[in-house]
């Protein structure tokens, strides 16, 4: 299941991150990679607000679809 289909407010585990290597590496530095926890906080204005390692990020739909959950 992709992050874009996840239920709001539930702690999930990342199974895989797809997409161009550059973006994967960038997400990795933020702590968004396989085995890590991620929570979808809300979906606002077409963007996905996620909690990763104590921080909040807004990511767009394309990125949310590239993050696959366990």
């Amino acid at each position: 299941m992709a992050l874009s289909e996840a239920k709001v407010g539930r702690l999930m585990e990342i199974a895989q991150v797809n997409g161009p290597e550059k973006i994967r590496k960038f997400l990795m530095t933020l702590g968004c990679f396989e085995g890590e926890n991620i929570t979808l906080i809300s979906v606002l204005a077409g963007n996905y607000i996620v909690a990763v390692k104590d921080s909040r990020y807004a990511i767009d739909r394309k990125m949310a679809q590239a993050i696959l959950l366990v």
Partner: peptide, 20 residues
């Protein structure tokens, strides 16, 4: 860290799809 904070609640209003 995954609990909903005050910031998250404010975001739901000010970054709302229609009202933002």
């Amino acid at each position: 860290a995954n609990e909903l904070t005050v910031s998250d609640r404010v975001d739901r209003i000010v970054a709302h799809t229609v009202f933002g």
